[in-house]
Simulated assay, not measured.
Amino acid sequence: MRLNTQTAIAVTADPSAGPGIRLISGQASFTMPKHSSQALTVLAGHGRIVADRARFDVLCLAEKTSVTCVAGDVEVTVGERLATVSQGQQVVYDGDGLRVAATADLQEATSWQDGYIVFRGTALSDAVAEINRYRPGRVMVLNATLGQKTISGRFRTERMDEILGWIERATGANARTLPGGVILLS
């Protein structure tokens, strides 16, 4: 298991059910050994993910969870619905239920493990939420119209302040820096 920044987990304590993890919030990558004798169960958001020989990534933020299968197959259960997610696929679920599995960009889904974040036509407000996971303080978008502008790019997570400068130039935003690492974009 590999954890991304601002991730909280709990290990389940039922030895009869095999290894289990509750992903409370954040993002984690799981790799099961090829010759594993037990399945791994991951509880995240409103769902349950089970894998015995797979590599997969789970992102659980707010009420939305996405499961990306990098290798093998995983089973995702939300309520009464079950989906098998195969290599190169991603499924998303929330309180409204389980969506249909779709093709995933594996490089984008796992880029955090190499120290990058990727935005592709991402609303600035969503990009800022992701940026806030990687830097101290907080960036806030003060204008709804600005928050809807989209950005694209691949950025090093260790250089968040450089990304903010790029966002200013690309979107025409004005940044105001306050104490405590707070940055206001308008």
Rank of each mutant, 00 (worst) to 15 (best):
R99Y: 00
L40K: 13
G18Y: 05
S111V: 11
L43P: 00
T7G: 00
A123H: 05
D114R: 15
D126S: 13
A8H: 09
M1L: 11
D161H: 14
Q107I: 14
K34A: 09
L146R: 08
Q148S: 10
Q27T: 09
A129I: 08
Y134Q: 07
S111C: 14
Y93C: 00
Q89T: 01
L43Y: 12
P179F: 07
N4F: 04
Q113W: 12
I9S: 07
V74L: 05
Q87M: 12
S36Y: 08
Q107N: 14
V128S: 04
G137E: 01
A13G: 04
I9K: 08
I21C: 03
L185V: 00
D161N: 15
Q113H: 15
D126V: 06
T68K: 12
D52C: 06
R48Q: 10
A104L: 15
T122N: 05
I151H: 05
V67I: 14
N132E: 02
T65N: 01
S36N: 08
A8E: 03
T84V: 08
A129P: 09
R135Q: 07
V70D: 11
Q90A: 10
P136I: 08
E63M: 02
Q27Y: 05
D96H: 01
E108Q: 15
T5M: 12
E130G: 08
E162K: 06
V91H: 01
G180Q: 04
M32I: 03
D161R: 07
L185F: 02
V141F: 04
Y134C: 14
T110K: 10
A83D: 05
L124T: 10
S86M: 04
L23Y: 04
I24E: 07
A123Y: 01
A39M: 10
W166I: 08
L142G: 10
Y93V: 01
L124Q: 12
L142S: 11
V70R: 15
T41L: 06
N143A: 09
A173I: 01
A173V: 02
P19Q: 12
T145M: 05
G172S: 04
A13V: 06
L164Y: 06
I131N: 08
C69N: 07
G115W: 11
A173C: 03
H35R: 05
H35Y: 06
Q6C: 03
L124K: 12
L61G: 06
L82N: 08
T157I: 13
E162F: 07
L124D: 07
I167N: 01
A54P: 11
A13L: 09
T68R: 14
L23N: 04
V74Q: 01
N132W: 07
G26R: 11
S36G: 03
R120Q: 09
G115V: 08
D126Q: 11
R156I: 02
